[in-house]
């Protein structure tokens, strides 16, 4: 980080762009942050029955991915990266 960056304030149009990009991801996925949080906790709950999960390393998001027919259209997709510390061989 350069010294000049400290004084350079982000322009309001950049703020608008960043906010829009974020809000549109959830709009397009038709999924609110509350629902996302529920999905997240449900997934963790289910997986915890079978494995010990590294809670700090969990990354669950809804993103856009290209459709398989290569028409250039995108569809929402659930992306989940859940590190497992240990498998429970006897389900609780």
């Amino acid at each position: 980080m350069k010294l000049s960056d400290i004084f350079k304030k982000k322009s309001s149009s950049d703020v608008a762009k960043d906010r829009l990009k974020l809000v549109l991801v959830s709009d397009r996925a038709t999924c609110s942050p509350e629902i996302m949080q529920k999905i997240r906790s449900d997934i963790i709950e289910v997986l915890s029955k079978y494995a010990e999960i590294d809670m700090a390393g969990i990354d669950i998001n809804i993103t856009q991915m290209d459709t398989e027919d290569n028409t250039g259209k995108t569809v929402p997709a659930l992306y989940a990266n859940i590190p497992i510390k240990n498998m429970n061989h006897t389900a609780k």
Partner: peptide, 16 residues
Amino acid sequence: MVKRGDMMSADDVIDI
């Protein structure tokens, strides 16, 4: 306003 960074340009909107 676009010039001084207080309004998104048409290109910014297209980008989004």
